[in-house]
Amino acid sequence: MIEKIEPVQDVKRRRDAVLSSFVDRVPFLKFMGITFDRRGNELTGIMNFDPKLIGNPVVERLHGGGTASFLESAAIITLAWKNIWDAMEAGEIDLENLEGGALPPLPKTIDLTIDYLRPGLPRDAYARATVNRSGRRYASVHVEAWQDRREVLFAQATGHFLMPYEMRP
């Protein structure tokens, strides 16, 4: 007996719907021009360049506060995504009710330490977060951000997050 394989479009529709509903719920992400690209379960945050993200108008560099926002957002969305994955793949998330409360609240930031390695250039920035530990209550997440070259980071951060009750196993 061969197990029926789920059609690819159904898989993509489910994953994209859950991811975009996490992202669309947060007005600040839209304000900052932060979007997410998905390859399987791997997320890449993108801070799409906009002149309003500039902090130093003389030499045109990204504002450190914008970079901090981007790293924090990438960490939160990646953490929420990692925690919802199993339930989502098991079909336990009501896709018809994503706006109405089928998704748990987002993790809350306890602290974040940002390392500014290079000036942010006036162009798109990318970030990937690694969940180094995800316990029942607390999670520790590391984020790396780059612009033109993946191996040349312009900022990195480590943060601790409080998991919402709904996400605790």
């Binding site: 947060v26 600040f28 900052m32 902090g55 504002h63 450190g64 506060g65 914008g66 901090a68 926002s69 981007f70 924090e72 957002s73 930031t109 974040l112 940002i114």
Partner: peptide
């Protein structure tokens, strides 16, 4: 969002 608060504190620090 915490990021906006970070941006405010970063700017005040600058």
């Amino acid at each position: 969002h915490g990021g906006a608060v970070s941006a405010l504190m970063d700017s005040a620090s600058g």
